[in-house]
Amino acid sequence: MSAFLQQLPALIGVVIGALGSYLAVVRGDQARFRREQAARWEERRLAVYADYAQSLKRSVTLTYRVAAHFGNDPNPHPLSPQEAEPLLTEAQLARDPVGEALILLGSTEVVQKAQEWVLTVVEMERFLRDGTHDPAAWRALVERQLAGRRGYYAAVREDLALPPGHSARWSVPQP
């Protein structure tokens, strides 16, 4: 019995070491799982943010072309309202599911900025459906749309902890 008592401290040390090692591995695995899960959700949010921006930009590009038809925009590829109607409808239908994903996965700030941007785009579409010829009013809508876009991208960058990006303002030389 005395041999057992002499080896008991070593045995207790081995048990404590094994338990400590097990706990360290479990905690490390949990931390790694949380990091990987956060990275997956961040990738999904980035994909949804980009998809939403692309779908909205498609509508914006179509509005520029229709505005050129009415003489409101200098876009070199005018499109009549009749030709644009099915394309605008298709763009809006494609925008809706991406918008729902944005609401589901996006931060409150990003969703709010997306809403501001899309409401301006809807105003642009309404402006064109009315057949308005007012280049100054159109320019004001375009500036609001660009500000909404910049606000959206800034909110996305902040949400994903990305560095500040390009302002997206291009200077186009006049012919």
Rank of each mutant, 00 (worst) to 15 (best):
I12G: 03
V122P: 00
H69S: 08
L46K: 14
G20N: 00
G131C: 03
M124T: 05
A155G: 04
I103G: 14
K57L: 14
V14F: 09
A168M: 12
T89Y: 07
L88V: 05
A147K: 07
E109D: 08
R34P: 00
S107V: 03
R44G: 06
V111F: 04
I12F: 03
V25R: 10
K113N: 02
A114W: 01
A136D: 13
T132Q: 09
P173A: 12
A114V: 00
A91K: 10
V14R: 02
G131D: 04
D134Q: 09
R34V: 09
V60M: 01
L146W: 02
V110T: 01
D29H: 13
V172D: 00
W117R: 12
P175S: 09
T120G: 08
Q174A: 12
G99W: 05
V48M: 04
V26L: 14
L46I: 07
G131F: 01
R27E: 13
P164G: 09
S59R: 14
V48A: 13
E83K: 15
P175T: 08
V110R: 01
A47G: 08
A154I: 03
L102G: 02
A38S: 15
A137W: 05
N72R: 06
E90D: 15
L87C: 07
A38P: 11
F4S: 11
L93A: 15
Y64R: 13
A84P: 10
G20W: 03
E36R: 15
A137C: 04
L162A: 08
L8G: 03
R44C: 06
